[in-house]
Design a binder for these strands. Structure first.
Lengths: 109, 109
DNA sequence: GGTCTTCCATAGACATTCTAGGTCGAGACT
DNA sequence: AGTCTCGACCTAGAATGTCTATGGAAGACC
């Protein structure tokens, strides 16, 4: 296949949190949303997605309710908790700080 | 203890390659250079640095010669191979593609 | 009823970083 | 001479997070 780009470790949580900022979405929908908004650059594997979601739940940043998808399939609609909502900002800031730092190193003096 | 920021997995190789673009440097010097040019945001632990360097050598992107440091200590001066020099561009492009993609996801529509 | 697709999930492999140790030698100080 | 610190190098093992591969359940569709 083509140039698959692997996610950087630690970035998936942020991508998920940010996606959930727009409202409750089920797992499959999160993956599709990230793929779409990244213009097909980022492909979230299920084997990465669900462990990540469970991680976020464990940390109290995300919760879910059972429901039915647009296609009438059983689905869990994940959404941010109040803590999670704050955490999005923390994580976003951290990401920006980090990428700015890396950019400085990459930019040849 | 302040807000230690951990490196993202996969970014260290690029940081090292980019640092070596400026000329041969010994390990300790690489760590200091990255710390300095990132304005103390990125701290490269030795336990990450040396495995990374050996990885890059194994891939044929980096090589080294023995020499003496500014302080007259024994040191290995690491430098890019011709292949490594090309690889810097590849890795830089990948990084930019990835961060652009992530930025699109983070940017709320 | 059979098959496709959607949605959820996990086990195990893999890669990279960190923690926590250790070595060895140069220079400084006593 | 002895000892201390620091510079430079290194590794083992733990921790983390992603990927590969796989499976299951249930609705849709023929």
């Amino acid at each position: 296949m083509e140039d698959r780009i692997e996610l950087l470790q630690g970035t998936l949580d942020l991508l998920i949190l940010r996606t959930l900022q727009l409202g409750p979405v089920h797992g499959h929908g999160i993956a599709k949303a990230i793929q779409r908004s990244s213009e097909d650059v980022l492909l979230v594997e299920e084997g990465s997605l669900y462990p990540a979601l469970h991680r976020l739940i464990k940390r109290g940043w995300v919760t879910y309710e059972d429901g039915a998808s647009e296609n009438n399939r059983r689905a869990k609609f994940y959404r941010l908790t109040p803590t999670g909502r704050k955490q999005v900002l923390v994580e976003t800031t951290k990401w920006e700080k980090l990428t700015r730092a890396i950019a400085r190193v990459l930019r040849p003096a």
